[in-house]
Amino acid sequence: MGSFFRLLSSLFSFGRGLFAFLLFFGLSYGILHSSLKEKMWVAEVAVSTFLYPAQLVVNQVTTWNRLETENKVLKSANARLRIDNDLLRQQFLRSDRMHEMDGIGLEFGDSAILAEVVAKNPGRMLVSLLISAGESQSLSRSMPVYTANGLVGKVSKVFKNHSVVQLLTDPQNKVSVLENRTRVSGILESSDSRVLYVDFPAHASIKVGDTLVTSGLGGVFPKGMRVGVIGRLLPSDIDVMKKVEVRPFQIPSEVEEVFVLKKEIDSVVREFSE
């Protein structure tokens, strides 16, 4: 047994790690060029086995770190909420009418479930989160994810008890949005995973401070979910467009709990994409 390990060790050390390099390079290349189904299988096995202890450690450290701050915040919030509660009782009665008048009322016929953020991607670009709900809670791909503040992203991968959320800041994620005042729509995107941009037609009278909501045009997000506010007008690369920088209502790095809206992609859009 000992001689087997010595043989294995010398084989791996051959050529100052050349054998090991070729082996792991080949393995990575194989994974990279495998089918989507195989990739899903590899990712699921990794998440539910060897990555689970690492997630537990990170969660524990994060929890300790935020408990003290949370306690202070909760005490002051509790006092404020008692007062707000009385006011909200009155406003609640008016809310249905307000939605009708608004013209962009949310049509959340489906239910939403609460999930906790259990991990964030360890790379330098914060583009995704891992949440504590998956297939067991009837989650599926492309379901919208949001908090009380606003839109966070959408579900991109679903495991048995976990899901990966693709954030708005992911350069691969593009969301159709609508400016609330002028009703002009544009595409929200990020090229560096930090700053969000939207290109609007140059004639649109967009101003700093205008609010953006989802347009519902992509079929993934329902119309009217709060996205962010226009922070800056920027010179566009193209004359016919007006580029704006968007400050999201929900800062991605500060998300701790999220709601997942159990909504399938609109059937018309699904048929079109198929």
Partner: peptide, 17 residues
């Protein structure tokens, strides 16, 4: 590979490589 798990599934293996 750990980084890949939390990133876009289409590029699984890219960070590992």
């Amino acid at each position: 590979f750990t980084e890949d798990i939390y990133s876009d599934i289409h590029w699984l293996g890219a960070a590992a490589l």
